[in-house]
Amino acid sequence: MSLKAQINDDVKQAMRSGEKERLKTLRMITAAIKQREIDERVELDDAQVLAVVEKMIKQRRESADQYREADRPELAEAEEAEIRILEPYLPEQLSEDELVEIVDKAIAEAGASEMSAMGQVMGLLKPRVQGRADMGEVSRLVRSRLAG
Rank of each mutant, 00 (worst) to 15 (best):
M1T: 03
K4H: 04
Q6A: 06
I7M: 08
N8W: 08
N8M: 12
V11G: 02
K12Q: 08
K12Y: 13
Q13P: 10
Q13K: 11
E19W: 10
E21D: 11
K24I: 04
R27V: 11
M28D: 05
A31M: 10
A32Q: 09
A32C: 14
I33A: 07
R36C: 08
E37Q: 02
E37V: 02
V42A: 02
E43W: 12
L44P: 07
D46F: 15
A47Q: 05
A47S: 02
Q48E: 09
M56Y: 06
M56W: 06
M56D: 03
I57R: 06
I57P: 12
I57Q: 02
K58N: 09
R60Q: 06
R61W: 13
Y67V: 06
Y67P: 14
E69H: 12
E69L: 15
D71V: 15
R72Q: 13
R72P: 14
E74Q: 11
E77N: 00
E77L: 11
E79P: 11
E80N: 04
E80M: 15
I83P: 12
R84K: 10
I85V: 14
L90Y: 03
P91R: 02
E92S: 02
E92F: 13
Q93P: 12
S95M: 14
D97L: 09
E98W: 09
E101S: 05
E101R: 05
I102Q: 04
I102A: 00
D104K: 08
D104R: 08
A106R: 00
I107V: 06
G111N: 08
S113V: 14
S116C: 05
G119L: 07
Q120W: 12
V121F: 14
L125H: 07
K126Y: 15
K126M: 07
P127N: 00
R128E: 07
R128I: 10
V129I: 05
G131R: 09
G131M: 15
G131A: 07
R132T: 01
R132K: 05
A133K: 06
A133E: 06
E137M: 13
E137W: 15
R140E: 14
V142W: 13
R145C: 03
L146G: 01
A147D: 11
G148Y: 10
